[in-house]
Design a binder for these strands. Structure first.
Lengths: 133, 133
DNA sequence: ATCAGTGTACTAGTTCACTACTACACCTTA
DNA sequence: TAAGGTGTAGTAGTGAACTAGTACACTGAT
């Protein structure tokens, strides 16, 4: 639908596509259980190789974001609820990167907090817009 | 000093080193004007090629984080204070990535906020510990 | 059983990221 | 002006990342 990809951007095609799908899922544009376009269909629409789409789907499946069934298609997985040490660690690093980035950009802490809160609100709205189930 | 690097980690050496330096600057372990180890010195300590270190320094200079002078050495630059549309954009993306990541990890918004605040405090402490100038 | 849909495996080629070797250019001090 | 420090430039090789071509395997409906 709204997927698009630029082979000349320097960023690998499969990364571009993967990020778009991840974001779509996280912002509830793609809802739980919803079917994604087939490997071939998407490949044709984006004029890329089916294997490239397949790779994206495989990686997303390994990350537990989608589920795929041979002969049937690919679907958005149920959101995981568990939250262990590994997740904790990843989030920790992500936050640290954000701090470093902000500093490098010349953004002071107060400004960062405001930005963060604003973004959090936006996200909350997106998730609530079509309350799932 | 505390730099270390693993050639077998899968992550490029120059990325590892660059991130360490960026983080050191952002957390005020490396202060404004402070001199970094020379290309050769660091290369020998880490048993890597001088050019790899040089690449790190070049990229960091392009990002405005350090300043380099032929024949003299390399130094931590003054922190930039300007804050334009480009910066705004980068920060925006960083925040968005964080939201997506958190969602994927199964972290709800409230928990994310708490984590964020905690991290912000840690960072504030680091910056204040040796108030510059 | 057959068909038309789905995802998958295998293979291979091309590009480029990454690192290293070597030699050069600049600056400061004595 | 010579020496010893600094960063830099050019070149090259190895390997892996990325994508594509082609053929296979599974599923559900007819």
């Amino acid at each position: 639908m709204w997927y698009h990809v630029d082979p000349h951007s320097g960023i690998p095609i499969y990364i571009q596509l993967k990020e778009q799908i991840k974001k779509a899922v996280a912002s509830n544009l793609l809802k739980e259980g919803e079917q994604l376009p087939s490997v071939r269909e998407l490949a044709i629409k984006l004029t890329i190789n089916p294997n490239t789409v397949a790779r994206v789907y495989q990686e997303l499946e390994r990350e537990g974001i989608i589920e795929t069934a041979r002969g049937l298609g690919t679907f958005v997985a149920r959101r995981r609820e568990e939250y262990g040490a590994a997740q904790e660690d990843i989030l920790e690093r992500a936050l640290e990167s954000l701090m470093v980035e902000a500093y490098q950009l010349g953004v002071d802490q107060e400004r960062l907090r405001i930005k963060f809160e604003k973004k959090l609100d936006v996200w909350r709205d997106r998730l609530k817009k079509e309350g799932d189930v």
